[in-house]
C-alpha cells in the first residue's frame, strides 16, 4: 500500500518532531510548516493526501488555513490536532472543513490510524468531539430549518454515544452488529451535518459554553 503523504502544520517544533517519530511506516511526512502563510504555501506546493493541522497557529489559526486551501484543493483532507478542549475551537475547525479532530495526547498508533482513516475520506471523532456534537444537537428548542441536516438519526446518536464511551470503530461495529464501513458512513454523515447545518445555535452553543 502506498504510504499516505502528510504535511505537518504546528508552531511547536518539538511537537512536529515528536509526531514525525511516532507516525508509522504507513505515513510519509513530506513537509512541515509553522504558521498560516507557510502552511498555505507548503500545502499548495506539495498537495499532500492529509494535513495534520494545529488549531492554534500564528497568523489566524487552523481555520484560516482551511479557508485558504480548501477552495483551491478540495481533495486535500485535514485532520485537526489540538490541545484545546474549548468547544468553539473544536466546532469552529470542523465547520471550517476539517474531517476530524484529535487531541495532542493521542498515541502514535492511534494517530496513524486516524491519518489513514481521514486519507480514505472518512471522518475521525475523538470522544470529546462526539460529546460536543451530542450536546450541540440535543440543545435544540428552535424549529429546524432543514430537518435532514439539523437533527441526528437514532443510529447516528448511538454511534456517537459509543465513541464518547471510548469505543473504537471496530468495537462499535461489533456492539451494534453492523460493519465498520457502516460505522464510518454514520460518522461521515454526522460530520456533514455538523459542517452544513445552518442551525446557527451550533456556533452559538459553542460560544455560549465558554461564556456561561
Amino acid at each position: 500500500m502506498k504510504p499516505v503523504r502528510v504535511v505537518l502544520v504546528d508552531d511547536h517544533r518539538l511537537f512536529r518532531s515528536g509526531v514525525r517519530a511516532e507516525l508509522g511506516s504507513r505515513v510519509d511526512v513530506v513537509g512541515e510548516a509553522d504558521d498560516v502563510p507557510s502552511a498555505v504555501a507548503a500545502i499548495t506546493a506539495l498537495v499532500p493526501d492529509v494535513v495534520l493541522l494545529d488549531v492554534h497557529l500564528p497568523g489566524g489559526g487552523g481555520a484560516e488555513v482551511l479557508r485558504a486551501v480548501l477552495p483551491k484543493l478540495p481533495d486535500v483532507r485535514f485532520l485537526a490536532v489540538s490541545v484545546s478542549d474549548a468547544a468553539e475551537d473544536v466546532i469552529g475547525t470542523i465547520r471550517a472543513g476539517a474531517r476530524g479532530y484529535v487531541t495532542k495526547t493521542i498515541s502514535g498508533a492511534d494517530l496513524t490510524d486516524a491519518v489513514a482513516r481521514v486519507a480514505d475520506g472518512d471522518a475521525v471523532f475523538s470522544p470529546r468531539l462526539a460529546g460536543f456534537v451530542l450536546d450541540a444537537f440535543a440543545a435544540t428548542d428552535a424549529p429546524s430549518i432543514d430537518p435532514e441536516l439539523d437533527a441526528l438519526t437514532q443510529r447516528e446518536r448511538e454511534v456517537l454515544r459509543l465513541i464518547a464511551r471510548g469505543y473504537a470503530y471496530k468495537e462499535i461495529a461489533r456492539e451494534l452488529f453492523i460493519s465498520v464501513k457502516t460505522v464510518e458512513t454514520h460518522v461521515s454523515s454526522v460530520l456533514r451535518k455538523l459542517q452544513l447545518s445552518n442551525r446557527h445555535e451550533l456556533t452559538r452553543w459553542a460560544t455560549d459554553r465558554r461564556l456561561v
Binding site: 470522544p127 470529546r128 462526539a130 460529546g131 451530542l134 450536546d135 440535543a138 464518547a164 471510548g166
Partner: peptide
Amino acid sequence: EDSQGVSIDVIVVG
C-alpha cells in the same frame, strides 16, 4: 486520577 495515577477521560453531555 490524582490518587491512583491513571488517566480518566470524562465526557459529560447535558
